[in-house]
Amino acid sequence: MPKILSAVACNLDVDILGACLPLMEASKVEAIEWSFDALFKVKEIPSWFLELLTAFSDEQRLIGHGVFFSLFSGKWLQEQEDWLRQLEHTSTAFRFDHVTEHFGFMTGKDFHHGAPLNIPYTNATLTIGRDRLRRIQAACQCPVGLENLAFSYSLEEVKQHGAFLDELLAPVNGFIILDLHNLYCQLHNFEIPFDTLISLYPLDKVREIHISGGSWEDSLAAPPKKVRRDTHDDAVPDAVFELLENTIDLCPHLKYVVLEQLGNGLITAESKTQFQQDFLRMEAIVAEKNATRSTESIQSFLPAHPTIPAHIAEDATLYRQQLELSAILETAATYNDAVHALQTSSLAHSDWRIETWAPYMIETAMKIAQKWKK
């Protein structure tokens, strides 16, 4: 088992950096996770931020976390081509110990906007996902992983997610970021026990764990249901720290535990102090676990025979359905409007299985899509 490193999600944001700085001054931060594609269009990155990235890169303690690739878009997009080219360029400037992306497809026609939502688990989506992961791995030339999604439409999807991730990652020998707050959302939203859900994930594929905070939202579609959302704008709940303590020992190849929080949740001095306390609590848990772990791991998470498919996998029907779903979620004025539009759409009685979607999660999907619509 490798030594586990305590890390922060650290990006070019005044409030995030302000919260991280005392931890860095105390030499507490052992690695940083950088959302590299958030800066793809920034013409001039400050030299001090590049120096910070280089310092961690030189020690093989820099990990990349992409946001905008839209892994399961049914159509291959020019923006994805550009994204890969920029990743290749960034990977020559910095040495990533690994690179990760999010599961799902981005809502909205404009590639760089929207939020990732789930897709049907079919042979078509499996083929597309595997194709994209091979291209990402070829661009960055390091281990590649995916993060489990917080959002699911149904309990059925929740139960299938781990196995689908496993199948998806196999050709690139990839790994999973197990986001424990995402898991916490599903434990609550679908009332499934932790032991049941965690047993459905291939935990020998977990190389990184995320912890973060979120928020509660009342459901109008299914009162008095409260939906847990992964908004990254609050402190880490005690329950997520408990999940961390219970999960680490189950993951033999875990290397990074990362604390994430959005800059908009770190504006006040109190929130910065809370972030630092959360980090120290996380670090203490990691240190305790490290004390009883051996230091050897033979899992490289690199593909034995890396290949790029000659033809780009696409699915025109899937792409049309993704656009249709995005439009419904982004424009429906009410939950009832959304349900009616879904029932009369091409998604009805299809692999999307909209008939099984939980009402309060359709409502949540609308809120997410409309929040991030541009």
Partner: peptide, 16 residues
């Protein structure tokens, strides 16, 4: 991980 004092100072300056 230990960062150099000059880098930490540059970050402090950089984030105002």
């Amino acid at each position: 991980m230990k960062l150099s004092k000059s880098l930490l100072s540059a970050i402090v300056l950089g984030i105002g």
